[in-house]
């Protein structure tokens, strides 16, 4: 008996977590997928009715705005964070004495809740008393910075806050990558008199391709899941101007009582995430087996 127990102990230890993941991740995804094919409204119904929820979803102007916003926000957020992160990493890599302190300063926003970030930037960008008022106070009477309350600009305000929060993290990734580059190659290039910018653009940056990929995956993942920042900064407004898929899903699930729409929008979100993550995970896992 004890021998049997000892032999099967590893499986028994893993079993509860495995069962939990099976139910709470895969079972729940299945449930949501199922319900997304029904006419569920306030309460879930389990009779399959085809693609009606997806038809409603793609016909909804609010969802349209949310997807457009995700695209604008995602592209700007990822590109600016990557460029800024790389720039900061290269600047910090020049044997700066205060590197530790600067790194701490650049990265601390990542420790904050998005709600805190949203609250802070909402106040800073508030047109009545924030940056706009301050710059006007300096004598630039026509200065305007009303992005948070301007429906055409509000999504860019979200980009600013998101970049502020995440770019330091990208910097940390790239800095780790820069430190991993073979010193000998760089020294050899220096001896050959190759200018520093050429060393970076031709040797160091190309060798960091895997880090670009990781950074992209993480940022894309953050962008698709973005929810708290929008809630705190703009509440999805003005109107629906800064709605993202995540806020749309939440509104349908918890304030509109439209479970069918909530489920179908969640499935689309998962589709977008998987389209990005699955090829990455697949190549990672395969690389490990080789």
């Amino acid at each position: 008996m004890t021998e049997w127990l000892e032999r099967h102990m590893p499986k028994m230890v893993l079993a509860p977590s495995f069962v939990a993941i099976l139910i709470f991740v895969y079972g729940f995804i299945f449930w949501t997928a199922w319900v997304s094919f029904t006419r569920s409204k306030l309460l879930p119904k389990y009779e399959i009715k085809g693609l009606i929820q997806y038809e409603r979803l793609f016909a909804s102007p609010r969802w349209d705005t949310a997807m457009d916003n995700l695209f604008i926000f995602g592209v700007l957020f990822i590109v600016i964070s990557m460029v800024l992160g790389l720039l900061l990493a290269i600047l910090l890599d020049q044997k700066i004495r205060a590197e530790g302190a600067l790194r701490t300063i650049y990265l601390y926003p990542m420790a904050l809740s998005m709600i805190v970030t949203g609250t802070a930037w909402k106040w800073i960008m508030n047109p009545g008393l924030g940056i706009e008022a301050t710059v006007r106070g300096w004598g630039f009477e026509n200065f305007a910075f009303d992005w948070v309350v301007n429906p055409d600009r509000a999504i860019y305000a979200v980009v600013i806050a998101a970049v502020w929060q995440a770019s330091g993290f990208v910097m940390a990734l790239f800095l780790a990558g820069l430190r991993g580059v073979d010193e000998e190659i760089i020294k050899a290039a220096q001896v050959d008199g190759i200018p520093t910018w050429r060393i970076y653009s031709a040797i160091i940056i190309p060798s960091m391709a895997p880090i670009f990929l990781s950074a992209f995956i993480v940022l894309a993942h953050l962008a698709i899941k973005s929810f708290d920042l929008v809630i705190a900064l703009t509440g999805g407004g003005p109107g629906y101007a800064t709605d993202l898929p995540a806020t749309y899903m939440y509104a349908m699930a918890f304030s509109r009582g439209d479970i069918g729409q909530a489920a179908s929008s969640a499935m689309v979100m998962m589709g977008v995430v998987f389209a990005i993550v699955v090829p990455y995970l697949y190549s990672e896992l395969r690389a490990k087996h080789d």
Binding site: I21, I29, W31, H221, A246, A262, A263, A266, M270, L281
Partner: peptide
């Protein structure tokens, strides 16, 4: 399977 679960957007399990 566990690793994969890290990547799902939680919206899909909320309901």
């Amino acid at each position: 399977l566990m690793l994969f679960g890290c990547f799902i957007p939680f919206q899909v399990v909320l309901l």
